[in-house]
Amino acid sequence: MPKKHRSKKSKQKPGLSPGTVVYTGQKETQKLFIEAFNYSPNHSSEKELLAIEDAYAYKSERDTEVTWININGLNHTNAIEKIGEHYNIHPLILEDIANTSQRPKMDEFNDYISINMKMLYYDKDKGLISEQISLILGHNYVLTFQEAEGDVFDELRERIRHGKGRIRTMGSDYLFYALIDSIVDHYYVIIETLGDKIEELEDNLFNGTAKDNIPTQIQDLKREILRVRRSIFPLRDIINRIEKNEHPLIDTKTLPFFQDVYDHTTQVNENTEVYREMVWGLMDMYMTTLSNKMNEVVKVLTIMSTVFIPLTFIAGIYGMNFDHMPELHHQYSYPILLIIMIVMVAFMIYYFKRKRWL
C-alpha cells in the first residue's frame, strides 16, 4: 500500500505582521460570489453583487431592516480587506476569516460579534468536506464568509423570501442564530452518516463478509470522526458564551433559541464521543476476529499433526532395516498394520469430536 503523505495545511509564512490576511486553503481558483439579502417584516429583496464595493450601500442604520451579505471565495483576500475596512472589522478577525485551519472560536467587540465555524457535508467523490465559514453579527446586519459556493442555508433563504416563520419579524441577532442553527442541524446528517458506516462495518465483521481493506476503512472512519470532533467540540463553549453573555447586539428574546442550539451541540458532541469509542471497538473486534480465524487454522493443523504422529511412529518402527523383527515376515502383517492405523485415526477423530475440538 503506498504511503499517504499529508498535504500542507497552512500557506502562511512565518514572520508576517499580525492582521495580514492570507488565504491558507486549497481552493485558489474559487470565483468571488457575493449575494445580499435585505428584508423587513413587509418585504424582502435579494441581489447578486458584481463587486465588493456594491455591498457598502447595504450598511443601514434603520432598525426595521436587516441585511445579510454572503461572500463566497476566501481566496479573494483583497475583497475581504475592503469589506472589513468598510464595516470596521478588526484586522485580526479578517486574518482568522482567511485562515481555514482556524479552530472554531468567538470574538466579541462593542459593535459586533465574530464566530469562526466549520461547515461539514459529504461529497460523493471526496467524502467528508470541512469548509471554513465565518459569521459577523453587527447592528442590523450579518456578514458570512465562505470558502466556496454551496452551503446549508437554502431553507433559510426560502424562509426569508417567503416570510415563513419569525425570521423577517426578528432582528439581525435572530438571523445570526438561524445561520448557526442551520450549520448545527446539518451536523446531525454527518452523525447519521457516520453511524450508518459504523453499523455496516459491524455487520460485515459479525457476518464474516468483511473485505481485506477493513483496517483501512476503520482508519479512514476514525479520521473522519476526529475531524468532526475537532469541528464540533469547541462550538458548545461558544454557544454557551453567547447564551450567558449580555451583549447589546443580542436581544433577550433570542437567548432561548441559542439555548436550543446549545442543547443540539451537546447532543452532537455526545454522539460523536460514542461513535469514537465504537470505532476503537471495531478495531478491537477486527483483531479478535483475525485472531479467531488464526486459532481455527492452528487448531486444524494441530489436529492433523496429532492424527499423523502415531501413524508416523508406527511407520517409523517398521521402516527400520532390521532383519529379525517380529511380524516382519508374517503374511498378514501389512494389512493388519493398515487396519490398526485406520482404527487409530477413526478413534482419534471420534475423540476430538466428542471433546468438540472439531
Rank of each mutant, 00 (worst) to 15 (best):
I242G: 08
I242C: 09
E246G: 07
P248D: 08
L249Q: 01
I250Q: 03
I250S: 10
D251L: 12
T252K: 15
K253N: 09
K253C: 00
K253E: 11
T254G: 12
L255K: 15
P256Y: 04
F257A: 08
F257W: 11
F258A: 15
Q259G: 12
V261R: 01
V261T: 14
Y262T: 14
Y262Q: 14
Y262R: 14
D263Y: 07
D263Q: 10
T265H: 00
T266L: 13
Q267G: 15
Q267W: 00
V268T: 14
N269H: 08
E270Y: 03
N271F: 03
N271L: 14
N271E: 08
T272R: 04
T272G: 10
T272Q: 10
V274H: 07
Y275P: 12
R276A: 06
E277Q: 07
E277M: 04
M278G: 05
V279M: 06
V279G: 06
W280M: 14
W280R: 13
M287N: 03
M287E: 02
T288Q: 11
L290W: 01
S291P: 03
E296L: 05
E296H: 09
V297N: 02
V297W: 07
V298I: 15
V300L: 13
L301G: 03
T302Q: 03
I303S: 04
M304S: 11
M304E: 01
T306E: 04
V307F: 08
F308A: 05
F308I: 06
I309K: 00
P310G: 06
P310S: 06
F313I: 09
F313D: 05
F313N: 06
I314N: 03
G316A: 03
G316W: 07
G319R: 11
M320Q: 12
M320H: 05
F322P: 14
D323R: 12
D323Y: 01
H324K: 11
M325D: 11
M325N: 12
M325G: 09
H329W: 00
H330R: 03
H330Y: 04
H330F: 04
H330G: 13
Y332P: 12
